[in-house]
């Protein structure tokens, strides 16, 4: 059979449909050039947080120039006083948890102005250390801490950004990892799948060749239920992981807690181990509740 020449050397007109344009999992079609013809626009925002994750972006040093070339930085108060808050943004990096009443409206605005919204750090992705208040009573804390509690306007809970708006991607950690940040920005700009693995810390720890602190020293370590990404920092210096990257997918916290009890931890200590920097992340929150 001789098939008719179905293929020409020229581009056949494309059928443009939503499926063909295809919103990616990041919400950006990498092949779609910026409508204004310019570089993708970046906004960096902050809610309740210590600014350490923005610091990671600033500490990119060598890479910072390349980033500044690739992106138009419209809003980054920590880095520049020249601010265009209105956007619109192709990429918004959001640090911090939703903790104060005004945050509720601000995050909606940012979402509306941003094509891709990435939350960065433990605060933005889980509520952060300040979410410890979620387990107690805000009024009690405010009255104990502040001499003039009537000046304090805070929400009863500190929560992750994803509980309020759609988040396209999360970078975990306290602080985030520079490698993951560069990988994510590169991946978004090049249209590749970011190589940010939701796997246990142990896999990273073993690739580095560190000796397991639980098995060799009997130290409790949240590595098996925590997402990798930090470079196994704590185990590298002989300490157990305290879970700052938050729960890995499918974290079997119950079996983890059993093991921690076996290693001699008290019920209170197990509860407190899960209720720490990412303690309000669902899997850790639920596990700590089992040890009330």
């Amino acid at each position: 059979m001789t098939a008719s020449p179905l293929y020409s050397g020229t581009q056949v007109s494309r059928v443009e449909t939503p499926a063909a344009q295809g919103a990616t999992e990041l919400g950006v079609d990498p092949t779609e050039k910026d409508a204004r013809g310019g570089r993708p626009r970046l906004g960096v925002f902050k809610f309740a947080s210590c600014s350490g994750c923005q610091g990671v972006l600033l500490s990119c040093e060598d890479e910072l120039l390349a980033l500044a070339d690739a992106l138009e930085i419209l809003y980054f108060p920590e880095a520049s006083s020249h601010l265009q808050e209105e956007g619109p943004f192709d990429l918004a990096l959001v640090e911090g948890s939703i903790s104060a009443p005004e945050h509720l409206e601000q995050i909606q605005k940012i979402r509306a102005r941003s094509k891709t919204l990435v939350t960065i750090g433990a605060c933005a992705t889980s509520g952060g250390i300040q979410a410890l208040r979620n387990f107690g009573n805000l009024d009690d804390f405010v009255h104990r801490v502040y001499p003039r509690p009537e000046f304090i306007a805070a929400l009863a809970t500190s929560t992750a950004v994803a509980e309020h708006v759609k988040v396209d991607y999360e970078l975990r950690g306290c602080p985030i990892s520079k490698r993951q940040l560069l990988e994510l920005i590169t991946a978004i700009l090049l249209g590749r799948r970011p190589e940010i693995r939701n796997e246990s810390l142990c896999l990273g720890c073993k690739r580095y060749g560190y000796v397991c602190v639980t098995v060799a020293h009997g130290l409790p370590c949240l590595g098996p239920v925590t997402m990798n990404g930090c470079g196994a920092l704590c185990p590298s210096v002989g300490r157990g992981c305290y879970g700052c990257f938050g729960p890995k997918e499918g974290a079997n916290t119950e079996a983890m807690a059993q093991r921690m009890l076996q290693l001699g931890m008290s019920k209170d200590d197990v509860r407190n181990a899960f209720r720490f920097i990412t303690g309000y992340a669902q899997a850790f929150r639920e596990e700590s509740a089992r040890h009330e």
């Binding site: 796997e199 142990c202 896999l203 397991c212 590595g223 079997n252």
Partner: peptide, 9 residues
């Protein structure tokens, strides 16, 4: 599976 942490060690 109830005991396995799926950590991959």
């Amino acid at each position: 599976a109830k005991r396995c942490l799926t950590c991959g060690n």
